[in-house]
Design a protein around this nucleic acid. Structure first.
Lengths: 194, 194
DNA sequence: GAAGATAGCGAACGGTCGTACGTTATCTGA
DNA sequence: TCAGATAACGTACGACCGTTCGCTATCTTC
């Protein structure tokens, strides 16, 4: 009975891969089934509908980001050095991206931001909780650093923006200097280079 | 004979509007024709194909951005106050966006970054020339400001990133404090608040 | 007022979309 | 050994996709 679960994750993984290239909208049941060598019915079956498959893919992509950027911090106490590592991991994630079409969360955000529905709601909560977590990391680091400081919320916006800009430079412009520039800009924005 | 031209721009305008909500991929000939009260053939005819219609829409959206953010600077000499005005206009553009689904260029960038083709090429050149223009503005402003300065390229990346993050906060998160935060972060990143 | 260009329509095409439904192998437990 | 559950299949469906092609109004211009 665990067979179904393995199939499910196999499908979700392929869906994330495909949707990262073509967008959530661009992912079709037929092409994904063909790619996995199964029937359309067998592909959608475990999820109920294409929409729910997309939800599962979105959730999985969030976990990929989380395990690449957030989880490696677990053995460090909050503070300056943990924010240092977070930024390093984040840039590495962008430079050597687990998604073939660039950061999935960023792409999904652009695609879904004007389309109300469960997908958008799910994404919004992912983004909101990431922002909160990031704000806490920034505040903890600032407490260890000499002031004055920018408001943590502003630093969060700047860091997220830099990740988006770096993603564009890497994916669209194919600029090899993007990761280094992003790292330095992030460290500066976080007050880590003083 | 100018009738055709007026129809063309009418179609392009509607296409930009629709694609800003649904994405370039999500724009279909049928729905756009229905919305404009014309036939599918009559809609695509002036462009040759849907793809070429999308190209025209992409070009038009670039012009909208340009006329909202860059053209108002024409009567100012390069330098600090011109960068001030650029940032103000940019945030206004994001906060009160001419596209119903948020900044079109940002959305198109996410959507096209992994899909080679003429659309991607066109977008890439739009982004590249905007970056160059922006770098020149930053350099001119820095020349009027007390040092030390971050590299102009890094400032450009930060400003573009902040526009993307603000766009997300406005469109996806619907955060009313986003424009103010973006304005302050941009002014800080550009060294204008010292 | 006839001839020709222009601009858009309407119908049809082959193809693909997502979904529904009944069927069939394959495993599981009594 | 055999009944039942499981997991995926194949087929069919109606809807919509983008494109093609011939037609028809509506204007110009002689």
């Amino acid at each position: 009975m665990a067979e179904a679960e393995r199939t499910r994750t196999r499908i979700v993984r392929a869906a994330v891969d495909e949707a990262s290239r073509l967008g959530l909208e661009g992912l079709t049941v037929g092409s994904l089934a063909r790619r996995l060598g199964m029937s359309k019915a067998g592909l959608v079956g475990p999820f109920g509908s294409r929409e729910q498959l997309l939800e599962a893919a979105l959730e999985h992509s969030g976990k990929i980001f989380w395990s690449a950027v957030i989880e490696p911090l677990a053995d460090l106490p909050p503070g300056r050095s943990r924010l240092e590592r977070l930024i390093a991991a984040w840039v590495d994630y962008l430079a050597d991206c687990p998604f073939p079409g660039g950061c999935f969360v960023t792409a999904a955000s652009s695609e879904l931001d004007g389309r109300p529905g469960p997908l958008r709601d799910r994404l919004r909560s992912t983004v909101t909780s990431s922002r909160e977590r990031l704000a806490a990391e920034v505040a903890a680091a600032q407490a260890e650093l000499p002031g004055p400081h920018r408001p943590p919320e502003e630093v969060v916006t700047t860091l997220i923006g830099l990740s988006m800009a770096a993603n564009q430079e890497i994916q669209l412009l194919e600029d090899p200097s993007a990761p280094t520039r992003a790292r330095e800009a992030m460290r500066h924005a976080a007050g880590l280079d003083r």
